[in-house]
Each structure stands twice: as C-alpha cells, then as structure tokens.
Design a protein around this nucleic acid. Sequence first.
DNA 1: CGGATAGGATAGTGTAACTATCCCATATGG
DNA 2: CCATATGGGATAGTTACACTATCCTATCCG
Lengths: 199, 199
Amino acid sequence: MQLKELSSRSGVSGASIKFYLREGLLPPGSTAASPRADYGEGHLRRLELIKTLRKVVRLGLDQIKAVTAGIEDPGLDDVALMGRVQALVLDLAEEPVPDHPLLAGLVGSGRWTDAPSQARNSLNLLLYRMDELGVPADAAVLAAYAQAVDQVAALDIGSVEQAGSRDDLAAAVAVGTHLYSQLLLKMLAVAQASRAMRG
Amino acid sequence: MQLKELSSRSGVSGASIKFYLREGLLPPGSTAASPRADYGEGHLRRLELIKTLRKVVRLGLDQIKAVTAGIEDPGLDDVALMGRVQALVLDLAEEPVPDHPLLAGLVGSGRWTDAPSQARNSLNLLLYRMDELGVPADAAVLAAYAQAVDQVAALDIGSVEQAGSRDDLAAAVAVGTHLYSQLLLKMLAVAQASRAMRG
DNA sequence: CGGATAGGATAGTGTAACTATCCCATATGG
DNA sequence: CCATATGGGATAGTTACACTATCCTATCCG
C-alpha cells in the first residue's frame, strides 16, 4: 500500500504521515521492491496507536515516541513494555528518590513491599513537593488512601487479554490506565459531592 | 505601589503583568490619585494565585480567568466559589448528562444521593466514553471503586481553615484538590506495583 | 510517453503564553 | 522649571508544539 491509501485507510492526512515518518514515530515503508515505499498493516496499527495516544490519552509526541521506541526494542519484553507505557501515562519518575518519612511509615508497617519502583519514586517526589508547597500530606489521610487503593489494586484490572501486536498491547494498556485513573478521580468527586450534599 | 515594584515583589515580569491586565486576570490599579496606576496587596495576592494555578495546578489562562471572575463575582458565595474552583481543577462537566446504567445501579443501591452534580455529569460522560472506546467499565470494579472512594470521601479533607482572602481561598482549594488527586493516583500506582512484584 | 504520485526539503499555520518595542503623556528629582 | 525615567496602551516578535502546505525532482504506471 502506498501513502495515499495508508492516509485514506487510517484517516490521517498524507502530510501528517510524512511528519510522523520524519519524527520517527512511524517506521519507513519497505523500499525493497521499488523506490516507492510500501506500507503494511503494521503501519496502519501504528497510526491507530498514535491517534489513540494523542486523542484519548493526550500524550505529547515525545512521550509517544518513547512508546514506539519501546515497541521496537527487542530487548524489552511485553511486561517491561507495559510497565513503560503505564509509567508514561501516569507520568512516573525514572530516577530514584529517597523515601519520604510518611511513606517509610507505610512500608515499615508491612503494607507494601520495600522494593523501589517508578511509582514509589513518584509518590516520594509528590510527598516532598507537598511539604515544599506548605500542604504536607496528612498521615491519617494517607493511611485511609492506602487502605482504599489496596482494595482497588486487589482487583487487578491489568489483565489485557492477548493483544494481536505490541502496538495493540501498548494501546490497550495506555487506554486502560488512563481511563481507570479518570474513573477513580471522577468517582471520588461524586462521593465527595454526595457527602457534601447530605451533610 | 507602581508596576515596577509590583513586578519585583511578585517575581512576575512587568511585561507579563501588563499581559495579565490586558487579559483581565489582574484588575487594573487605582487611578484615583493620579493617572499612574496604584497597585496594592490584592494585586500581589492575585499574582501569587495566578502563579500557583499555572505552575502547580497547571491550569490554562482561560480556566484561571474563570477562577478570577468567580472571585470577583459578589453573587458567588465562598462555598460556590470553592465548588467552581474544584470543578475547574478536576475538569468537571457543566451540562447535565443522563445517568449511565452502571451509575444508575450504584445510586439505586442507596450508596449516593440522587441529586445531580457536575461530578456526576462527568462520571456519566466518562462511562459513556469508555463504552464508545470499547473499554466498558466493569461493574465489579466500579463497585470496588465506590467502596474505596467512600472511605476516602469520609475524611473530608476539604476543611480549608479561614483564608485571608478569596484569592487565598481559591488557591488553597485548587492546590489541595490537585495534590490530593495526584496523591490518590500515585498511591494506587504504588499499591499496584507492590502487588505485581509480590505475586 | 505523459500525467500522477512519492519522498525529501523547506516553509507556513494556529494556538498558547508570554516577551519586547514603540510611543507619548506625565511625574518627579535636581 | 525642565529633563529624564516610567506608566500604560498598542503592536509586533518569540518559543514550543503539532501539524499543514508548497516545491521539486525522480519515478512509476497506464
């Protein structure tokens, strides 16, 4: 398939496809047969992925590039890829952050594993940030949050049933992570509004 | 105080202050005494509010304008102002949305009040959106989320102890809403990562 | 063989949020 | 009382992001 057909089938303009090629989000088509590139189903899936990450998950092109780079990295297995996608969607921190006293308390109580993770780095960063902003997190609130999120985590939504490709896998994880985060926040807003109106 | 001093005291450039004046985020200074405007502590507080909403809460100028308009609207009492600020931070929907079957179920069970709210509109919008995207929310997950957020809502973090001004009130609500939302999400990520690593 | 692409290079568009320049009236210090 | 700095308005320029459009030449296909 050539550019025009890829464009009409994907709903992405030819100019944008060229742009994504330049940016390295979309791999070049095969030029084996002739100097005119030949695109396949993989390119179509990639464009769908890009559209989803842009419009649904609202990632920037840099973050999308990190996703597609992961998809194309054979040294990254599917589980690691899913971790990277989740980290990008949730804006988790790469670099290690020493534990905040409040988190140290939660971990010390045996609730969570002591292993470092990007999620933990980000939570520590946030707790320090709250201190700096003069809105330190309340220990009681933190304990309640911990209990609540443990219940939620026990459900293990993350079961993405077999995706056909790494592009689809990445899309499913990104969309699921994003939407269920939103769901939690909106439900909390409803619960709080409900309480406020009752009492 | 004149522009130069307002600028140095607030850390906002003179050009930006002029820009905020043009955009109507910052009220004009008094020109009663002389044609050179005189700014006061209120202008300083307003600039702090704008800085906080931009850098911490990451609102756009349009949303900030909605906040400042609310602050200056005498027909809006403090409670209504707090609601508006929260709605802007959480990106809640103004227009009514008919209940989604899943939410109707939760409300029907007596968990939450039946009264409409912006939070409820947004949740309904999200549930419909998830259906459209082919990722319908799972009833069991929703029930678990409901229980979790009810625990959290019971804490009632929203107690902003007396703010000195409506600007400070808006800033406190915006920052609190934003940071505690982030806290919930990051803690969920930690809980999930912890589970994943254990088993 | 000729009109329609492909692909590369380059430049333009629109939005958001500033930032810088000009200008002139005025205010203030010497 | 006058010169210079400053305020405020208007206007234009800048940066970042994500495209979008135009040119050009080589080439493919009917």
